[in-house]
């Protein structure tokens, strides 16, 4: 094969290689953005207090659970009134109210209350919590996550947040 032919071969190989790379770049690189889009998307914390029910629903006999209703933005949908989560409420001193989220810090199952044993428990992996939320038993790495709550004009209001599971300190999802 002549030197000329070798030079042409080399040139064609470079052209083929670069073109293949260009096809890949046009098709694949923008696709990475689509795939990792959820990592780039950060939800803003709703932040404000949400009214969740009448204070008369609180009881001296034990914790009460109430749904939290609020606005939810999910992909393209903005739903004005949907359930965002559930909170456990207990009467505090005087007008105070104590709120904890019902999501287990272990792996996220919904925490229930056992009236007989007077403790909170998670049905999935058997974590149990005292009435103050502290871990009694089981795999939960931290106490039930507390939420800011108050009573205004006879209405219970909660600043609702969701937290990542695992970890000894609560980290808000967002």
């Amino acid at each position: 094969m002549s030197e000329d032919a070798n030079g042409r071969r080399g040139f064609l190989q470079v052209v083929a290689g670069l073109s293949a790379a260009a096809v890949g770049a046009l098709a694949a690189i923008p696709g990475v953005g689509v795939i990792i889009d959820p990592l780039l998307r950060r939800r803003k914390s709703a932040g404000g207090f949400l009214p969740i029910g009448d204070a008369s629903q609180l009881s001296d006999d034990g914790p009460v659970s109430l749904p939290v209703i609020g606005e939810l933005v999910d992909a393209w949908t903005r739903a004005p009134e949907v359930q965002l989560g559930t909170v456990w409420l207990q009467k505090g001193e005087g007008d105070e109210v104590k709120a904890m989220t019902a999501e287990c810090p272990h792996l996220g199952c919904k925490i229930g209350y056992d009236g007989e044993q007077d403790h909170f428990y998670c049905p999935c992996h058997k974590s149990s919590f005292g009435l103050d939320g502290s871990v009694n038993d089981g795999p939960s790495p931290r106490a039930m996550d507390p939420l800011e709550a108050r009573v205004r004009d006879g209405v219970i209001e909660v600043r609702f947040k969701r937290f990542r599971t695992q970890g000894e300190e609560p980290v808000e999802i967002g």
Partner: peptide, 17 residues
């Protein structure tokens, strides 16, 4: 290789471009 490959791919790049 490489003559036909180079032609094919250059054409594809042109079209996709």
């Amino acid at each position: 290789w490489p003559g036909q490959w180079a032609r094919d791919l250059v054409f594809v790049v042109g079209v996709l471009g």
